[in-house]
Design a protein around this nucleic acid. Structure first.
Lengths: 305, 305
DNA sequence: CGAAAGCATAGGAACCTCCTTGGGAAACCT
DNA sequence: AGGTTTCCCAAGGAGGTTCCTATGCTTTCG
């Protein structure tokens, strides 16, 4: 089988017209280079050099081989270089999981920050929802992620809480916002909830279910939609109320439904955001950078833990 | 050190997302591929796959590496292919030595014939003079050549005579061409001789010197020029006479000096053309092809042996 | 003709490659 | 939930490769 080592020896010999000189350049003894070249000639089945008195002379077949050999060597060296520069974050891709709400909070700003610090990299923020992200983590397609920790069955995962965000009750009807909403009142409300696909494992849903169960009530939603933006929009149209993280409320309400306002639950409920990665994993520099930046931003819009 | 083998294992693993599948494709046991990949990771100093439960998942560094690995592999395969096609004369270069006069006889026709039979090849006809060609042979820069055998000290060389060509006396004065020219007459003639640089080792000179010496005369040349064409031209202008191979005379006189004619020497003298190569050398297909074609053409203009 | 240069060969030590076997973890299947 | 399968890693050993030193042979050069 053809090997780079053989090609290296061939090229050195070709350039020097001498096995001895090639060996010296490569830091080997002369018979070693001789052996490699002979092996190459054998695998190709053709003579590459004529052994002629003092020295060796390339055949025309060697002339034919040379450019390809050079290309192979060059590609292998390029490979080394490219990987090194990627590992030092001069290039390459940083891939990081992030659930929908967190992206809403700070996604664009995080990408901008990373690109400012590492102009050569490509950034991928992956995943729509915490559970989806978690699945990718579990499968190893992601190294680390920022997720809503409440929804995590954390087996095999290391979870590092970073910030918490209060869940607030939003409504277009000011009369429902005069006092904090209790479980009893929430159970009677007509709710519009997002994240339909993840109905049973969405962290906000889990929190609400627990909140209601503890007071002996059952959750009940009137309208299910996929996007948080749409549920806020619908609340603005007076079709129902909703419960969403406070940072999401502050971001979405002014934009989508200025007539909507919010009030706390009683007792207050918190969605916890956390960094998550496989237990025992050694994080790449890329992942560490993104964790650092994402944490900083999340903590600037939500409450640090 | 990076090796093609490692890259091959890496690529197979990358494509299958599995060491086992890669091993199967490559025809190895799984631990072997595993070892190669680990060695590659070690030499690069970076992780290329995350080992995650069942299967492995490429890291972004693997994504970075892949195109370079593919390029290196591709170049090595191209190398193989290129050499094979060159050895089968589908491509590559045929290099062949040929002394000036022989090129004059049939050079262009030989090149045309080779190209017709092997459209992909490049042809190099090398060398101005038999001695120069012979030197290149000795140094191994040429595999084989067609030379004027008279001038060869053939030690270490295999010489295969192919054709002989009579040396003829040419003149613009018809009165000197009525009878064959003897050594006595030649000694008195005013001669224009080509191949100045090779004065002492040119085969025609050697033949003439021997021809004259045997009759007790000394050679004497009036004008020395480099090119056979020029000497014929000068003979046409009546500045002297010359002795050149008959085939050269037939080719050059109509073109350069129609008023010139020729006559034999007495006794007739012959320049011998031969194929020459290093003793014991195994000739490449390319060289064999050129020998065959050149021989055919030389024998069509000169007298076969 | 002797000296120097340069390739080939030989033999042995170190290393690499590949295999088989066995173990453990994750995923899949009742 | 428990058993089975899948897939990876680890270990150990056989066989091959690589690389060295030493030596011999041929060519070249003074």
């Amino acid at each position: 089988m053809l090997s780079l080592h053989q090609l290296r020896c061939f090229l050195a010999t070709y350039e020097h017209g001498s096995l001895t000189a090639a060996a010296e350049e490569l830091g080997y003894a002369q018979p070693s280079v001789s052996e490699q070249v002979r092996a190459l000639e054998k695998t190709l089945g053709v003579p590459l050099f004529r052994r002629v008195g003092r020295g060796v002379v390339p055949t025309t077949l060697a002339d034919t081989l040379r450019p390809y050999a050079e290309q192979a060597i060059a590609a292998s060296e390029e490979a080394r270089r490219a990987v090194q520069s990627a590992v030092s974050l001069e290039s390459g891709t940083i891939r990081f999981g992030m659930f929908g709400a967190a992206r809403l909070y700070a996604g664009a700003q995080i990408v901008a920050d990373v690109l400012e610090r590492y102009p050569g990299v490509r950034v991928e923020l992956i995943g729509q929802h915490s559970n989806e992200v978690q699945e990718q983590l579990r499968r190893g397609h992601l190294e680390a992620a920022m997720i809503a920790a409440t929804s995590v069955e954390s087996e095999g995962m290391t979870v590092i809480p970073v910030a918490r965000d209060e869940l607030v009750y939003i409504s277009a009807d000011p009369s429902r916002l005069t006092t904090p909403v209790t479980a009893a009142r929430l159970a009677k409300a007509s709710l519009i909830m997002p994240e339909t696909t993840w109905r049973n494992s969405d962290s906000v849903r889990i929190l609400l279910r627990r909140f209601l169960h503890e007071a002996g009530h059952n959750p009940q939603t009137r309208i299910e939609v996929e996007e948080a933006e749409i549920s806020v929009d619908l609340v603005g149209r007076g079709l129902g109320d909703s419960v969403i993280p406070r940072a999401a409320a502050e971001q979405l309400i002014p934009r989508l439904a200025p007539n909507v306002d919010w009030v706390s639950l009683r007792p207050k409920q918190y969605d916890v955001m956390a960094i998550v990665h496989r237990r025992g994993a050694v994080l790449s520099p890329a992942a560490q950078v993104l964790i650092e930046i994402a944490t900083k931003h999340i903590q600037s819009v939500a409450e640090p833990i």
